[in-house]
Design a protein around this nucleic acid. Structure first.
Ligand SMILES: [Zn+2]
Ligand SMILES: [Zn+2]
Ligand SMILES: [Zn+2]
Ligand SMILES: [Zn+2]
Lengths: 131, 131
DNA sequence: GTTAAATTGTTATAATATAACATTTTGTAA
DNA sequence: TTACAAAATGTTATATTATAACAATTTAAC
């Protein structure tokens, strides 16, 4: 693992200490005091961080979270649970699931080298609130 | 199944006969001759069509395809394969997979009621081109 | 027929993301 | 330690995706 560049480190630190996924322009707003002024600077760092597996993009939310699973730094097999009420997102680290999906072969004969899975529902807290 | 409204039908027909996922503004361009002039008209129809399961959104591509699986008209358990070379997208209809994911329970105790899975790789055609 | 719900029409604007180009920094190897 | 290539940065402009707000019309149910 190479070290992160200045902008990459600033942006990773912000995402890593956030309890929730962050959106690109919210990141931009938060790092402007540290000298990062343009969207492109943010997107470039995000692209790199995703590429090296330090963060993941939550596709259904256009938001980014730090990898919570030190073993998935290749970013090619990701799974998340998303609460549709409070929007809490958790990275799922379940070897049964990842084995199942990594070895999954469909009848179309396609060779998969990557997947992304997003589960939606209500987290424990939000379930109990509703009852 | 209720009938579709005029705009919904126009937009569904276009998506349904497209061999590839369509993006919202490409849809807009294509239906302007039929009287649909504004992005919001397209997005409203898309929202409804997704809600009733006639189309699905491919989140990683911001594009829409017709449901290829008549049995999933609730749109709560979707899986796709995406070729990273030619961008061909296919809806996966595999009961083993859907059973596994629908009954999946993680240790976080969350109750899932929906999921979306996207596999990435090279389709048969693109694999053979590279060899 | 009356009413409520769904759909449509329209203008403006917000939010997300990339193009293009110039410069600087960093790592690698003669 | 200089020379070169790769990576990262800085900057302006623009493209793409999506929603807010409000008014009018159509549809379906009672
Ligand atoms: Zn991870
Ligand atoms: Zn919640
Ligand atoms: Zn479907
Ligand atoms: Zn292909």
């Amino acid at each position: 693992m190479q070290n992160l560049s200045k902008n990459q480190q600033i942006i990773f630190d912000l995402i890593d200490k956030s309890p929730e996924p962050l959106k690109a322009y919210s990141i931009l707003f938060n790092v402007q005091k540290r000298g990062i002024k343009a969207p492109l600077q943010v997107y470039r760092a995000l692209d790199k961080l995703v590429e090296i597996g330090k963060i993941h993009k939550i596709e259904s939310r256009n938001a980014f979270i730090a990898c919570q699973n030190s073993s998935c730094q290749i970013s090619k097999a990701t799974a998340f649970s998303i609460c549709e009420s409070c929007e809490k997102v958790t990275e799922i680290n379940n070897s049964n699931l990842s084995k199942y999906l990594t070895s999954f072969k469909d009848k179309n004969g396609m060779k998969y080298n990557k997947y992304n899975l997003e589960f939606f529902g209500l987290c424990k807290k939000c379930v109990s609130k509703k009852s």
